[in-house]
Design a protein around this nucleic acid. Sequence first.
DNA 1: GACAGTAGGTTACCGCGGGTAACACCATTG
DNA 2: CAATGGTGTTACCCGCGGTAACCTACTGTC
Lengths: 192, 192
Amino acid sequence: MAPSVLERRAGLLEAADRVVQREGPAASMNLIAAEAGITKPILYRHFGDKGGLYRALAARHTEALLERLRAALLTRGGLAARTRATVDAYLAAIEERPQVYRFLVQRAAVEEPDVRGDVEGFVRRFGDELAAGIRSEPSLQGIDETRATVWAQGIAGMVQATGDWWLDHPEVPRATVVEELSALLLAGFDLR
Amino acid sequence: MAPSVLERRAGLLEAADRVVQREGPAASMNLIAAEAGITKPILYRHFGDKGGLYRALAARHTEALLERLRAALLTRGGLAARTRATVDAYLAAIEERPQVYRFLVQRAAVEEPDVRGDVEGFVRRFGDELAAGIRSEPSLQGIDETRATVWAQGIAGMVQATGDWWLDHPEVPRATVVEELSALLLAGFDLR
DNA sequence: GACAGTAGGTTACCGCGGGTAACACCATTG
DNA sequence: CAATGGTGTTACCCGCGGTAACCTACTGTC
């Protein structure tokens, strides 16, 4: 029987995912179409343009990752535990799927800021999530709004950049990176 | 009289610079050649490939920026003053030339890791510089080697990401961003 | 002065990526 | 039996990075 349009779309995303897994940021529309066993125009009918497919793909992984991060942000045991868990969640995710990670970050960097807020790069969304986490953090109640935002964006970038660096220095254990970053941040949080 | 090959090269870089100023990351070899009043093959004779031109261009700005950062890292008046000065130097630089900044960051993100250490992305170099700064920081003597490196890469990313965000939020004064980031970092440094 | 060599430049092309127009093949439905 | 619409394809356009081949004008040398 004929698959519904949504099933179709899901299947295409599946294929795109496999290509990204293999090729990282070099995943092209041609490759993806080939992997899905169809031709380009179909892809374009479904996703509009490469940006559209990127967004659909990013939404998937970003959502999944944000889910993990949200969970980490809710870790019980105090701010220190939450901080470590969150940093660790991020690093664990990029360790599991470095190619996907590279794809997300790179596309986010390259994608022009279409309608600001629509694409909203990967790191930026991470930052937004962190900002929410910070604002609802019990031990940080009453934190200045701007401070929360700036910190969140900064921390997102810090974790991301360190992650990048770490991908090239696998000799450093994940736990070490987590510990160093968390230590730096936790002391800062003490300012309130 | 005929300009020497180095003068020529400098002139080409000058032209490339103007294009980047105008076009940001969209600067293409065609555009640059046109701006210089010549054709592509000449560019390629001088720089090998786009990566080569990118490196030459990046070297310019990176060197200039690193120079400012080094100066900031030597600010007298203690760690707090140095931290603020360094963060401020970075933000001031991207404020002055946002297009150039975008170009540098984006190219660094996209450029594949040729011979690791040759290209070495923009943020990475910033990180290296910071690492040196941290290691030679009087009040941080004896800091663990790995910690210094991780912190440096992380801080570089933090400042960069915040800078990105700030470019889209000009309503926040630079001084505020500097203050918030510095506060967060300085508390962390207290750990030693 | 005629000639070769070479530096400096150009035209015209290749391959590939994103993106699209136009056409072909069914199926349904009046 | 049309006519209609969804699904697919082929074949193309453009611009980018990159290069081969050629063209030109200045130099030195016999």
